[in-house]
Amino acid sequence: MEKFITHTGLVVPLDIANVDTDQIIPKQFLQKTERVGFGVHLFHDSRYLDHSGKEPNPEFILNKPEYQGTSILLARENFGCGSSREHAPWALEEFGFKAVIAPSFADIFYGNCINIGLLPIKLSEDEIEQLFNQAQDAQLNLTVDLANNNVSFINKSGDKVSFTFALDKFQKYCLEEGVDSIGWTLDKLDTIEAFEGKMPSWQ
């Protein structure tokens, strides 16, 4: 996993609540045995007018010229609900997103993002509203500073605004160091084996 230190990028405001993983990556694109090839199908049903994905829907926000090159997705509550498919964060990451900002995330999606190094950032409803106002009116470039747990931007009045976000300490460490979490756990095999030795026979 790549290390996440800081990132500055263009924010795209996706003004929809309860975006589920079926919307992020529909089921017909899950039939792969590799981990690549999902980005092109991200938000397929909204992003393309046709089934084969040849005709971009000009109304969909990711297709608008002013948001090309975006790397930070701004969304509404309960983002990533539904299926556990990790293909959803894979598709977001492959499209070019480094971070997703929302007031709340579905639990499995949130964990999946952390595990692949796509940073999910929870902010308050009020902060999210401010970001939508900024990003919908003009191009919003945002800096994510993981070490300091904050995001910052220059608002319309030219002032620097900064919001802090919470992140589990170990998850933060894994993101910052690009830790192979399986290798980390395998270093504790003695502890796991000791646990197994004490388990009841039926378990």
Partner: peptide, 19 residues
């Protein structure tokens, strides 16, 4: 009992544990 992503599937395969 709960659903997990593919990275976690791999973690369970390799370690029989999850964080």
């Amino acid at each position: 009992a709960f659903g997990i992503g593919t990275s976690e599937v791999e973690h369970v395969f390799a370690t029989q544990t999850l964080r």
